[in-house]
Design a binder for these strands. Structure first.
Lengths: 200, 200
DNA sequence: GTCTATAGGTAGATAGAC
DNA sequence: GTCTATCTACCTATAGAC
């Protein structure tokens, strides 16, 4: 009698599932993917998968937690010492934003995951609704603080940057990554960050 | 014996269903809504609803067709005579964009419908995948043509405008419409449309 | 034009064997 | 840790009565 399944350590299995979950949820959304599909992709059964996470919702939360854990490290590095004492120049801000875009461009599956979930989670009964409400508010505050050296309305500028960032990344995804994300962002950021001058 | 249902003309019933469908699909996506929920909202049964559209997919297409029909009229009006012979000034472009944003701001349920479907439809097997591929390509061409009087890279500028437009509208939705969409767009558009100057 | 009834499928989750 | 089997719920769509 042959073994029909592979035994794996708890941590290895969890990591494997979480990686696959990022892609399958990014493709289909939380509502659109099934635990069974994810399980098949991980070469196991749905019951086996649920043993590790308990429920579909708990799996989603685990995915988001894991991403946050990794993002925290990377973003702290990108902000570097700058974050501690406010960047001194628009040029420093431009470089920080550039690093964030570059990082996202290297991981289109995460752009997609967040784009998908953020739209789904506008519905108040979505399990990630509160998560994104808090996360987006925090991002807005962080960006406002970051750019307050540039103009007299950091709140508005932060909104513009977040909107442009989101919009450009999403378009890049839909376009099947057919243009140079970082290059286009640089041009866009130049316009957003340039001090306001008189109209033409 | 009392009547348990309301008889209605074919056209009235279709119109009623389509209006409700915009909201329910915008809330839950195509994958996330059920014909039964929509039917309940229209005070009828799912079988009764399907009598009018045949299938869930056909209903989605009918929603998109109906929107296109109405949008064509409105957008033609917004572009006005300008479209026929290329706007002569950045100011004219600015006004056209402003009208488009204003129109969308008056109909948040459509912003939501399109935001939801556009993300869902990145998946190649989504019934609206091809629809949005064609639609977005056409929008990009139209905007590039519209702004070619402004800079030397209309392709890139059109991308930037579309990205900023999408991103800002989506943020406005998520924020529960807590900021002035048209006002913020004006500020953003100023920066995008201002001719490129030297860095500070 | 709308209903009831139902077919046939898939979903998430649990129980218990190994 | 993973499986098989099963429960319950819900889904889309169709058939046929009214």
């Amino acid at each position: 009698m042959t073994r029909t399944h592979v035994r794996m350590s708890k941590d290895d299995r969890r990591a494997l599932i979480l990686t696959a979950a990022v892609e399958i949820i990014g493709d289909n959304g939380f509502r659109g993917f099934s635990i069974k599909d994810l399980a098949v992709r991980c070469e196991m059964t749905d019951a086996g998968l649920l043993h590790h996470f308990g429920s579909k919702t708990a799996l989603l939360m685990a995915v988001l937690d894991e991403r946050d854990r990794q993002d925290e490290i990377a973003i702290a590095a990108a902000l570097g010492d700058e974050a501690g004492h406010d960047p001194r120049s628009p040029e420093a801000v431009r470089q920080i934003l550039r690093m964030l875009v570059q990082r996202n461009g290297d991981r289109p599956e995460f752009i997609r995951l967040y784009a998908m979930l953020r739209v789904e989670a506008i519905a108040p009964d979505h399990p990630a609704h509160e998560y994104f409400r808090l996360r987006d508010a925090a991002a807005h505050r962080m960006f406002a603080r970051l750019v307050h050296v540039i103009g007299d309305d950091p709140d508005s500028l932060a909104r513009q940057i977040l909107a442009a960032l989101d919009g450009l990344e999403l378009q890049w995804l839909r376009d099947q990554q057919a243009f140079d994300l970082v290059g286009e962002w640089d041009k866009l950021a130049d316009k957003l960050l340039r001090p306001t001058g008189p109209r033409e």
